[in-house]
Design a protein around this nucleic acid. Structure first.
Lengths: 125, 125
DNA sequence: TGATCTGCTATCCTCCAGGATACCGCTATC
DNA sequence: GATAGCGGTATCCTGGAGGATAGCAGATCA
């Protein structure tokens, strides 16, 4: 099955890793911001529009947290008016791989769940 | 950067996938149950002991949800007393790949964050 | 001259995942 | 007969993520 089968230490290490990962990526919106930015959005209102249902308060918090985590940088471009853009850092690339995997898996899983409930209904009838 | 850069439709599809994935795997405990089971635990109290801090109520709920999602099966083994074991399904394998990736990324990320805060403190001094 | 863009911040509120604690019937061992 | 295992369930409660709504200062459009 897995390389950490019956290996308590590796198992615990994996748990800690997963806990840290969930802490960093979990929550309803953080990954959505990543996806929006991977899709080319890099200004506040642009990102806000790209993510259906997000409020500015929440987006603001996510952007700050993600900056602290090293996923993006807030860049002010002097001028009149001063513009603000958010740029993904090179480090965020490691996360974007996870995001794409997660997205692909999620789509497949959704289909799987739908198949299952279909079968369940067929069995009922 | 990414294959979905400047591709609104792919971007939206990825968002939906990620949303579905988060819905399925998010929460503090579900992945932990996966890891514990990958580590060989397959009975209720065994899993409970493998996961530091989980309460039986929460574990019970997680196991039910995961069964509904097709990740595991509850199997009663007749006898005296009747035993109950939880088995990962073949389908759960797709998830276990994600779990391992997530765990590995989480560990790396933790180190990264620690490096960053070190640098920050060094800069202060 | 007012409306509408930008990039946000401030308040107040709701809801529910998860925590704490207790307990159930059953078996087995001491 | 008491204590400890098993596999859970029942209640009550709290924190904090996130939702709703409003507003602000500056620029620009019409």
């Amino acid at each position: 099955m897995s390389e950490n089968e019956r290996n308590p230490e590796k198992c615990k290490a994996t748990m800690e890793g997963v806990r840290d990962a969930l802490y960093a990526i979990s929550g309803k919106w953080r990954m959505m911001v990543m996806v929006a930015m991977l899709g080319g959005a890099n200004r506040f209102n642009e990102i806000e529009r790209a993510i259906d249902g997000i409020t500015p308060k929440v987006l603001s918090k996510e952007l700050k947290d993600m900056e602290l985590n090293g996923f993006l940088q807030r860049v002010e471009i002097a001028g009149n008016p001063t513009q603000v853009i958010y740029e993904l850092t090179p480090y965020s690339k490691s996360l974007s791989e996870i995001v794409n995997l997660l997205g692909a898996w999620g789509s497949r899983h959704r289909k799987h769940v739908m198949e299952m409930s279909k079968e369940l209904n067929a069995a009922k009838a």
